[in-house]
Amino acid sequence: MLTILQEKDTDLLLQRAARHLCQKLRDALAVHAAVNIAVPGGRSVVKIFDAMRTEALDWHRVHFFIIDERLVPIDHPDSNFGLLRDHLVTPLAREGKISPENAHPFILDTTATDRGTLAYEEVLAGQGFRYDIILLSSGEDGHVGALFPGHHSVTDPHHGFIVMDDSPKPPPERMSSSLSLMLTARTGVLLFTGEAKREAFKKFGDATIPVSACPARLVTGMKDATVFTDQIHE
């Protein structure tokens, strides 16, 4: 089922998205011993992390994975994992609410042809090789993670993590969850925030456009998907 929630005030919208995510985590924890949630980076996602910190739930049973990552070390300023660590996991860990080991970074290995993706797949395999919940934020072209429209990333048949040296969005070197891995999630939350995303949101709403042309549409294949957007048509 797909639900679209609209709110003109972007900050209020992101707070609603954070509360929604935490409720979905509680629902999943009610039936699973542990829950995997995969998250991206970005300014909007940082605000969601900040809001999630105030929510009460059993964080010790939640495991975080990174949807996509630039091919940089985890202490690099451009690291998506760094945003998750600094804005959610470390503050929760300081309060004894989560173990830092529950946040699983992608570790770049420049000596390996796979850049470290196989090792990351082994970590995910230890948690069931699936996502329970996935948070996505659409780009201006409708890309999510590092799956780009009309690009080999979105049609790559590999089930796991993929790397590329030709990302249409700089920097060109990126890692991403594959399409099939993202679709292991039962619950998806997708953000369309900012005027620059208006055209992408329009494409998302066109059922004739395939996922390969608008990767954000992958959430329409999930059992439970909610879109949060500040795109309001008067």
Rank of each mutant, 00 (worst) to 15 (best):
T193Y: 03
S177M: 15
G116H: 04
E101M: 07
L29A: 02
F106E: 12
E195H: 12
A185Y: 00
G116Y: 00
N36E: 09
I48Q: 06
L183K: 13
H60D: 14
L136I: 08
A34F: 08
K197W: 03
A56V: 11
F148W: 14
H158W: 10
R43F: 01
H158Y: 10
V189C: 08
T220S: 14
R53C: 13
H104W: 09
K223A: 15
H159T: 02
A146L: 11
P172E: 13
R115Q: 13
V163Q: 09
N36T: 15
A216Q: 00
G41R: 02
V211S: 05
D86T: 12
N80V: 08
R94D: 15
A38N: 08
H20D: 12
T208W: 01
P215G: 00
T184P: 05
G145H: 03
Q231L: 06
L13C: 02
M175I: 01
A112P: 00
R53K: 15
M52Q: 11
S176D: 13
P215N: 06
H143C: 10
Y120V: 07
L92E: 06
D86W: 06
G142I: 00
A207M: 10
V31R: 15
R174P: 11
H233K: 12
E173I: 03
D156N: 15
D224T: 06
G142N: 01
V46N: 10
W59M: 10
R198F: 05
S138P: 08
D166I: 04
I66W: 02
M182F: 14
K197T: 09
V144I: 15
L190H: 04
P149L: 07
M164D: 11
K24M: 08
V46K: 14
D156W: 05
A17V: 03
L57F: 12
L147F: 13
R16H: 13
V35K: 07
G126K: 05
L25I: 15
A185I: 06
P100Q: 09
E95P: 01
E121W: 07
G150C: 03
T117Q: 00
L2I: 13
A38E: 00
A207L: 14
L190N: 06
I66Y: 00
T184I: 03
A103S: 14
L124W: 01
F49W: 04
V189T: 03
Q6G: 05
V35Q: 11
L190E: 00
L83G: 11
T229A: 10
D206M: 11
V219C: 09
K223R: 11
E234D: 14
V62P: 02
I37T: 14
Y120M: 04
D156T: 10
G96N: 10
Q127T: 10
H20Y: 15
H158D: 07
A213M: 11
A225S: 04
R94G: 12
E69D: 09
L5Q: 15
V211W: 02
G126P: 07
A213Y: 01
G42N: 06
P105I: 00
E101N: 07
R198Q: 12
A51Y: 11
A103K: 06
V154A: 10
T226K: 00
I232N: 13
C214D: 08
T10C: 02
K169W: 06
M182V: 07
L12W: 01
I98Y: 05
E7I: 01
K24Q: 14
P215Q: 07
L84E: 14
G139T: 08
K202T: 10
V219R: 08
